[in-house]
Simulated scan of single mutants.
Amino acid sequence: MAIKQLLKRTSGWLYLNSPVGRNQLQGAGVILMLHRVLASDHAAELPHRNELCVGPKAFEHLLVWLKKHFDCVSLMDILQPGTVRSDRPKITLTFDDGWRDNALNAFPLLQKYQVPASIFLSTDFIGSRQRFWWESIGETLWGSHGERARMQLIDCLRQVGRPLPVAFDELDVERRSLALLHFLHSLKTLSPADLNRLTDECPDESLPQALDWQQVRMLEGSGLVRFGPHGASHAILTGLDDQRLHEELSRSRDALHNGCNRPLPVYCYPNGDNDARVREHVADHDYPFALGTGTGIYRGTDDPLNLPRFGVSQRVARNPQLLSWRLFRGART
């Protein structure tokens, strides 16, 4: 695996620095997808966090690398480019959900390097103590809130027909974290009611998980950050009937218009899930653009209501050449 990663990193570096790579990326735009920036790189490295989290050192390393190889621009500079041309490819950062650590840990580094970003808010969570199920369930099962809380949640999981794998506690740290990652993925098929019930079994945390509206206005006032909707309740839109879909889209749109001065004309699908019906509803709610989770480079010819992004994990942030390898592969499709 180490040799394979070395080959990818080397190939990615060669691609970015070759005439072929520069020509393929000329006039294109790269949209990155992040979620959280934790206070600790060590915490972000475990597999069950690595997928959605980066640490501050890795994030800073990523920003330095991006500034070296790209023009770091706002999302709208990619979606609605002006007349100013550049020889360098454009790249932009997007953050999903609206985690509180976006303000505490990510923003100081964005400000230090003057890198703009877009944050897509699950608006029901903003300014409330409502919790994201993935974080609450994952950390409780990991033991972050104590053994008693963990055992109570395990009992509740049995009641909804999702027992924790028997051998979970016998694994070493790395394999246990990886097993937890797979287990959390399996819970995505549970109903929202069951996920809420499981989340309610988890201990309350000292701070809300999400941003509050004061933080949103502070970040927006910096001129570096703009906000868009990522659902209201983070419900998977493809699973909603037409009435509930309309309510979900309207509630998130109205919250952004009430809470922000310049909300983005871009929707961001929870979990990336969308279909023709969802895209039609999003367009009917006055969104000319929407972000999915499919991988690819934006050249202005993509479906504007299902735009591609490249996900950034802790591993990628620590080794950005892996990102350039993915750009190489994306440029060929």
Rank of each mutant, 00 (worst) to 15 (best):
K8V: 05
T10I: 10
S11K: 11
G12D: 05
L16H: 05
I31A: 02
L32A: 06
L32T: 03
A39E: 15
A39R: 14
D41R: 11
D41I: 08
H48L: 02
H48Y: 13
R49M: 08
R49N: 05
R49G: 00
L62P: 01
H69F: 15
F70G: 02
F70S: 04
F70D: 03
D71K: 10
D71N: 14
C72V: 15
L75Q: 02
L75R: 04
M76D: 09
D77Y: 06
Q80H: 09
P81V: 11
T83Y: 11
S86I: 12
T92H: 09
D97H: 10
R100H: 08
P108G: 11
Y113N: 10
F120A: 13
R129E: 07
Q130H: 09
W133Y: 11
S136H: 09
G138C: 08
G146S: 04
I154C: 06
R162F: 14
L164I: 12
P165F: 04
E170T: 15
E174S: 08
E174V: 08
R175E: 15
R176G: 04
L178K: 11
A179W: 12
L181K: 12
H182L: 15
H182R: 14
L184Q: 11
S186M: 11
L187C: 10
A193Y: 13
C202Q: 03
E205N: 07
P208R: 06
P208D: 01
Q209F: 04
L211G: 04
L211S: 03
Q214V: 06
P229D: 01
A232S: 14
A232N: 07
H234C: 02
H234T: 03
D241W: 03
R244Q: 14
L245C: 02
E247M: 10
R251Y: 05
A255Q: 15
L256A: 13
H257F: 14
C260P: 14
C260H: 15
N261V: 10
L264D: 03
Y269Q: 01
P270K: 00
G272M: 01
N274F: 05
N274V: 12
A276R: 13
R277P: 06
R277E: 07
H285K: 13
D286F: 12
T293Y: 10
T293D: 09
T295C: 14
D303A: 12
L307D: 01
F310D: 00
S313Q: 00
S313F: 00
L323W: 01
R329M: 06
G330D: 00
